[in-house]
Amino acid sequence: MTTSTIARESYYQRTGEHTFKPTVHTGGAWSADEQHFSPLAGLVVHAVDQYLAGRPGGLVLARISYDILGRIALDECAITVETVRPGRTIELLEATVTIGGRAVVRARAWLLATLDTSAVADSPREPLPAPESLPVWTMDEAWDGGYISSIEVRRVPPVRRGRTTAWLTSHVDLVAGEPSSPLASFVALVDTANGIAPQQDPAEWMFPNVDLTIHLHRAPRGPWTGLDTTATFGPTGQGLTSTVLHDVDGPVGQAEQILTVRPQPR
């Protein structure tokens, strides 16, 4: 399936004020009857955007941390957002995703005040090669699922396991008939980092992440999400996927995913 054949389709359809139905494009990489976490992470940011709509500007999302509490079924989900720590310059929000009355994801987002620090803005990290300069990687040759089939990936050919750089984009809308912010669309691709530089063959080993934490030092813009990713497996069943996040203008932040590493069942 090419991205042109799924243009104007969506990952979710709104079914109520706070409820959403996943489409086939959310299908998971580890199991066909589960949602891939990546688009759901973007949907949570979309819900946060709506929660904040109409407020005076001045606060921006600087960190969002997701805990994945259990199986994310391909069923209708509800997302609630509340303020945990209000403030004029610093605020903490919490979002909860429930499916069938059970919480499956909890996310906390720190919002920070904005001011002009352009005179001291700097990063030692170099920009990535332009997306157009990299070869297309047919990711669905290595991974299953509707989500993987929905994205375009351009990747630096890995020279070793667990290390690569890639650009991702999608022509699938986040929510049918609704505009999404550049941040929500960007975040909707970040969780893919755990699959672009696998340490081991996913047919032989499982290494799903149980969390995702994203820190941002500036707001990203689309349509490309850049992932400079390193995956590490430890000796006792844990792993870590670490990613420097980029847009086409340069680095924007970092993402971390803790992994549970185990052999595929026989």
Rank of each mutant, 00 (worst) to 15 (best):
L112Y: 01
I90H: 14
L115T: 15
S180I: 15
L115I: 11
L74P: 02
G58P: 13
D173H: 13
S170K: 08
V190L: 12
W167E: 06
G100Q: 06
T80K: 13
D49I: 05
A119H: 05
P124G: 12
V175D: 03
R108V: 02
I79M: 05
T83S: 07
R161W: 14
G100T: 05
I90K: 15
L69D: 03
P131F: 12
S181P: 07
R125L: 12
G145N: 03
P127R: 03
E76P: 02
I79N: 01
M139S: 10
L92K: 03
S133L: 07
W110M: 10
T83I: 10
E94C: 03
P129V: 10
T83Y: 08
A193H: 00
D144S: 11
V97P: 00
V120P: 09
D191A: 01
G101T: 10
C77F: 07
G146H: 04
S149M: 15
S123Y: 12
A119K: 05
P56G: 14
A188L: 03
W137V: 11
R163Q: 11
S149A: 10
M139W: 09
A121L: 15
A62N: 13
L168F: 01
M139C: 13
I151D: 03
A121Y: 14
E141A: 06
T114R: 00
A119R: 04
I148A: 14
E82P: 04
T164H: 04
E132D: 05
L61V: 00
V81E: 08
T98S: 10
V136Y: 15
T165N: 02
P56Y: 14
R160P: 05
R106I: 03
S118Y: 07
L128D: 02
W143K: 14
V81L: 11
S65H: 15
A176S: 13
D67G: 09
D140H: 08
I64C: 10
D144W: 11
R88V: 07
A78C: 15
V97K: 00
G58N: 15
V97Y: 00
P135N: 15
L111D: 00
A107N: 04
Y147Q: 06
T192E: 07
A188Q: 03
L134Q: 08
E126I: 14
D75A: 01
A95M: 08
I79W: 01
D49H: 06
S181W: 08
D191V: 01
I64D: 05
L189K: 01
E94H: 04
P131T: 12
D122T: 11
V136Q: 13
S133D: 10
D75C: 00
E126F: 08
L189I: 02
A166E: 06
L115G: 12
W143A: 09
E178A: 15
A95W: 03
V97M: 00
S185K: 07
R125A: 08
R71C: 02
R106G: 01
E132Q: 05
V48E: 04
L128T: 02
P158F: 04
I148K: 11
R163H: 13
T117Q: 09
T80Y: 12
P131K: 14
G58V: 11
